[in-house]
Amino acid sequence: MRGEGTLRQGKRGQASGGKPPGGRLALLVALLLLPTAMGLAAPGVPALAVTTEGSGEQTYTVTLQILGLMTALTLLPAAVMMMTSFTRIIVVLSILRQALGLAQTPSSQILIGLTLFLTFFIMGPVLDKAYQEGVRPYLQEEISVTEALVRTREPFRHFMMAQTRETDLQLFAEIAGQKAFESPAQVPFSLLVPAFITSELKTAFQIGFLLFIPFLIIDLVVASVLMAMGMMMLSPMLVSLPFKLLLFVLIDGWSLLMGTLASSFYIAP
């Protein structure tokens, strides 16, 4: 029968050690692709390498530069909050919301957005100077990566030094075991950043205290009047809220606050 003949031919092929056509085709394709695979696996331009030039400067491969850039982008939010005017502004706006007695108005998203754009406005000269002195020459291949980082960092150093109190710098210098610095350029970034944040928090709480006083007076007056009228079951916060909003609107509070916050930062020349 036909099935028995096919079975005999299959057994005869296995007995003779022959390979099926599919196996031969796969072996042929593997032999043809082997040189190509070896060529792809051959080492090309090293991905992570540092080359020292004759002048002593070190150049990094593009892959290493991209890796450093991606790492820096992950730290960008922390740098925006800790090395700019962001901290002072958001703390003052949060205290103002509490002083007005508004729990969720304006919302946190609005406060953060307002703080972010006001920060860009205040930090405009610093960012422009950092770009002109550090980023732009590097993009034009006039300076190396190391020199570009140093030049970009200097405008931020001047800005933070202008806002930082000497007592805070001295405090962190004593903690770190550092001696007195002869010039601001000698202060390391690892010491300047925490001192700057501490000074910003102090200044923000001072401004917030001054903002809180007029609204606190309104709360005290309203509470005294309600108690004198015997209306103890009525919440003083509920009655004083319209008066505080009216006072804030009549004095054009938002313009005064934004102008005061913007002018409270000293931009070092």
Rank of each mutant, 00 (worst) to 15 (best):
G253L: 09
F156K: 01
F121V: 03
T115P: 06
V239S: 02
V249I: 13
F86M: 03
S16Y: 00
E174W: 00
P46K: 01
L7C: 07
G22R: 08
E174I: 00
L246E: 10
S16P: 14
A99V: 05
P242G: 05
P194I: 10
G56S: 04
L210S: 09
E133K: 08
M237R: 12
I143E: 00
G18N: 14
L201Y: 01
A37Q: 05
A148W: 02
M231Q: 14
L64M: 12
T198V: 04
L28Q: 15
V249T: 14
P194A: 14
V29Y: 04
R157N: 08
A78L: 12
S144K: 09
P269R: 00
D219T: 15
A148Q: 00
R151E: 08
Q170G: 06
D252N: 05
T61G: 01
L201K: 09
A204L: 07
P77E: 06
F189E: 14
M81T: 10
Y138C: 00
G177W: 12
L250D: 03
A72P: 12
A228S: 10
G5C: 05
G22Q: 09
M70N: 13
T146R: 12
P137E: 11
L250R: 02
A30K: 02
P137G: 06
Q109E: 12
A15G: 15
K202I: 12
P236H: 04
V80L: 02
E4P: 00
F243V: 15
F159I: 07
